[in-house]
């Protein structure tokens, strides 16, 4: 059993580390001159973070997740609504899971 003091210390440690990651990027960039090349890096970095989050998660989630992501992407292209795309992806996954035939 973890006692109260230990738990507080652990939470404080987690909070401090997480806060440092949140401010770290801006702190580092405040020492780096933002040239056009750095700006191009940051712009591609921004999209690449999301791509790097989504693709492995979708692959790990199997056919259901891949189809849900495809649906969300399609709805985004058609409607330009992020919330609509999100709901469509969730609806797609829920529907596939409700099917009597289990996907792989």
């Amino acid at each position: 059993m973890v006692d109260g003091t230990t738990a507080f210390l652990a939470i404080a440690l987690m909070a401090a580390v997480t806060f440092l990651t949140r401010i770290g990027g801006v702190v580092i960039m405040s020492f780096v001159p933002i040239t056009p090349r750095i700006e191009a890096f940051l712009r591609h970095l921004a999209v690449s973070v999301i791509v790097a989050l989504v693709v492995p998660a979708a692959v790990k989630g199997g056919p259901t997740a891949v189809l849900a992501v495809a649906t969300a992407g399609l709805v985004m292209v058609l409607t330009r609504s992020a919330v609509g795309a999100m709901l469509a992806g969730v609806a797609c996954a829920a529907l596939l899971r409700a099917l009597p035939i289990p996907l792989l």
Binding site: V51, A57, G61, A72, M76, A82, G89, V90, R97
Partner: peptide, 25 residues
């Protein structure tokens, strides 16, 4: 289990698609 686990990746997918600027991306 209601598909909420795909919620975030769907939302992020929308964010990626919304940033598409053409083939060089």
């Amino acid at each position: 289990r209601f598909g909420f686990d795909v919620l975030m990746i769907s939302f992020f997918t929308a964010a990626v698609v919304g940033q598409w600027r053409g083939l060089p991306d």
